[in-house]
């Protein structure tokens, strides 16, 4: 076999596919000191393996674990860590009850990529350009983890630390992601090339009908997507007035810790934050002060 990418004689890593959660945790632990990493869909991980940013001795596949699940229970959505994003996108209830989450999932890569990419992988890799993290923040989602010392539940806001950094402990795995309630919501982004680029800015907005408050998250700034609680308070406890929305957009534009890079200048990004926030809030359907 010849060619630029003809298979090498010596593998760069060993791949193991444990049949149980316990074995998966043990396989990760047995090669610790950064020597092991988990793979779900692999659509992001393989890029880092390809150009050497990551060089684990062992890759632990989650493909045999029973985590390709999607469950609604008492209004809460639980998505198994290894469910392909395409299956999440295809769920009619997700589109109806969490429209912003549907839009965020749809914004990830292409159909072929979403057939393999997963919610667990997206969170575990904590990419700065993740379309899903800002929406999960605005939905007050939580991550269910399982590891050598048992299970724990962590808010997404605490789980995502920075670009490529999470609260995962050695040997720990993301089992599922929980969205506590259906929320009228929207996710809007701006890209240089819509089909195959990451967003210059993305804005996730959601309204909690029970608690009557807004959540706003912005992505496209360092060190990670973040909630803007002060901006959310500007919007009040229902459909905001034009004045309230203008004030919120102006505050968001000022407040975000944005920098310029090759995708957009700082000034352009600040304007985008205000514009996308205004459009996203307007896209959340209300009637007579109540969410539809």
């Amino acid at each position: 076999m010849e060619g630029p990418h003809a298979p090498r004689a010596v593998p760069g890593f060993e791949l193991v596919a444990p049949a149980s959660v316990e074995e998966a945790i043990a396989a990760l632990r047995a090669a610790d000191d950064g020597g092991a990493t988990a793979i779900a869909g692999g659509t992001d991980l393989l890029l880092d393996l390809d150009d050497g940013r990551l060089a684990p001795r062992r890759v632990v596949s989650l493909r045999r674990l029973p985590w390709r699940t999607l469950d609604w229970l008492d209004g809460a959505l639980t998505v198994g860590a290894t469910l392909p994003l395409r299956s999440l996108e295809d769920d009619r209830e997700v589109r109806r009850r969490l429209p912003g989450l549907w839009q965020a999932v749809h914004a990830v890569g292409s159909v072929a990529l979403r057939h393999r990419a997963t919610l667990g992988g997206n969170l575990g890799r904590s990419a700065p350009a993740s379309d899903l993290i800002p929406m999960l923040l605005a939905l007050d989602a939580e991550v269910d983890l399982v590891g050598p010392r048992g299970e724990r539940r962590v808010p997404v806001d605490d789980f995502v630390r920075a670009s490529r950094r999470t609260a995962l402990l050695p040997g720990e795995l993301i089992r599922s992601v929980r969205v506590p309630e259906p929320r009228p919501s929207a996710y809007l982004w701006q890209r240089v090339r819509p089909a195959n680029d990451i967003s210059q800015i993305a804005v996730a907005v959601a309204f909690s009908p029970g608690r009557r408050h807004w959540s706003i998250a912005v992505a496209g700034m360092p060190p990670r997507p973040a909630l803007l609680p002060d901006v959310a308070r500007d919007l009040g406890d229902g459909a905001p007035s034009d004045a309230a929305l203008t004030a919120a957009a102006a505050r968001a534009s000022r407040a975000v810790p944005i920098t310029g890079d090759q995708r957009a200048s700082e000034e352009y990004r600040r304007r985008l934050v205000g514009t996308l926030l205004t459009r996203a809030v307007r896209a959340v359907p209300f009637e007579g002060g109540r969410p539809l």
């Binding site: 793979i39 692999g42 393989l46 292409s110 072929a112 990529l113």
Partner: peptide, 24 residues
């Protein structure tokens, strides 16, 4: 994973062959 030239069907579902480990 940007261009789609390597798209194949895996159990009928479009898949990027460049971002898929064969053993997976």
């Amino acid at each position: 994973g940007d261009c789609g030239a390597c798209t194949v069907l895996v159990d009928g579902r479009s898949t990027l062959a460049c971002l898929t480990l064969t053993r997976e």
